[in-house]
């Protein structure tokens, strides 16, 4: 809606203008060189047009200083573009710590969205403006890609792992969501709308939505339904490690490797538990592949994130 130009996308996030500035810089440099070379070619073609068929050009073989000049200048400009592009990229890949979490699951051919408070939507995403939103995304089937042109953000949604992206909307309005990675028959129908709202409107919208239990509550229910709790006990007597405080910590594995327990580590430990076993434990956990959907996984992870470390220092588990 907020687009005034018919040939330019709306800029509705904090990073959108960063991306646009970089775009105009490279556009300027490119236009300069395109015009320079085109004009030179045409001028030479006219000025040095051959008069007689057998005419020959001047006996010039080259010039080292010119070669160095037109190797050096493009190189320097390219490096400027690299550094600038990398800067914008780092901004795009590091979500602020106070981001609000929203879960997204892609499947052929729809987007399922779940807010932390439990409100769910399909092919729609409501977000407040001026507040960073971090999307954690998984796929049920093939690779998809969550793309919001107005925010200049895009990220693949890859089966078998979780990916994240973030943005801070700056202008209220409705913007396109596109699936940008080809995913089959209705790829071009896998679209939706992101609605950026004033914070108070967003609160009102949340309150009006039919919440079906928050993600954490759902995760807690799954944690007991799937009997995770029988092994992962808070008093450290279970056959598995207690998961309180594990998120974000560094875990030492059986073979001495250390890994950071991020979302992808938690996901892998549920779907493929044998691959990274915590030091002091046996590889006895069964896989939950096929038993939990991507949505359930995200809920379980949301719950595990809330668990507090156990009271006493964790005693080494038996066997």
């Amino acid at each position: 809606m907020s687009s005034t130009l018919p040939f330019f996308p709306p800029s509705a996030s904090t990073v959108a203008s960063d991306v646009d500035y970089l775009y105009f810089f490279i556009l300027g440099v490119s236009a300069f060189f395109a015009v320079l070379v085109s004009v030179l070619v045409l001028v030479f073609a006219i000025k040095y047009r051959r008069n007689k068929p057998e005419d020959i050009g001047a006996d010039i073989h080259g010039s080292l200083s010119l070669e160095l000049l037109w190797t050096g200048i493009p190189f320097i400009l390219a490096m400027v573009m690299f550094v600038w592009g990398a800067q914008v990229f780092f901004t795009l890949s590091k979500p602020p710590a106070d981001s609000m979490d929203v879960f997204v699951v892609g499947k052929q051919w729809m987007w399922k969205v779940q807010h932390p408070e439990g409100v769910r939507e399909i092919n729609e995403l409501h977000v407040p403006i001026n507040r960073p939103v971090r999307l954690t995304m998984g796929s049920e089937d093939v690779i998809h890609d969550f793309f919001i042109p107005a925010f200049r953000v895009k990220m693949d949604v890859v089966p078998g792992k979780l990916t994240t992206m973030w943005f801070t909307a700056t202008k209220a309005g409705e913007y396109h969501i596109f699936c940008a990675e080809y995913c089959g028959t209705k790829h071009s129908g896998m679209i939706g709308t992101v609605t950026a709202m004033e914070p108070q409107d967003y609160e009102a919208w949340l309150a009006g939505g039919r919440a079906t239990g928050s993600a954490v509550q759902n995760g807690e229910r799954l944690f007991s339904d799937l009997s995770c709790v029988t092994c992962h006990k808070a008093d450290s007597t279970g056959r598995g490690p207690w998961l309180g405080g594990v998120f974000g910590s560094t875990v030492t594995l059986n073979d001495g490797r250390k890994v950071v327990a991020d979302e992808n580590y938690l996901r892998e430990s549920i779907m493929n538990p044998q691959s990274k076993v915590v030091q002091g434990f046996q590889p006895i956990m069964p896989t939950f592949q096929g038993m939990v959907s991507e949505e359930n996984l995200l809920q379980l992870i949301a719950y595990v994130k809330t668990l507090k470390p156990a009271e006493p220092a964790p005693a080494p588990a038996k066997k």
Binding site: G85, R152, V153, K154, A180
Partner: peptide, 30 residues
């Protein structure tokens, strides 16, 4: 040759847009 020069210039220069990571995020797959 004129045709090649004109089109290759545009093609090559727009590669710079796609090589710059922050900009490629927006442009890739479009």
């Amino acid at each position: 040759i004129f045709g090649f020069m004109g089109l290759f210039l545009v093609g090559g220069l727009t590669g710079l847009f796609l090589g710059a990571m922050g900009l490629d995020i927006h442009l890739t797959d479009t």
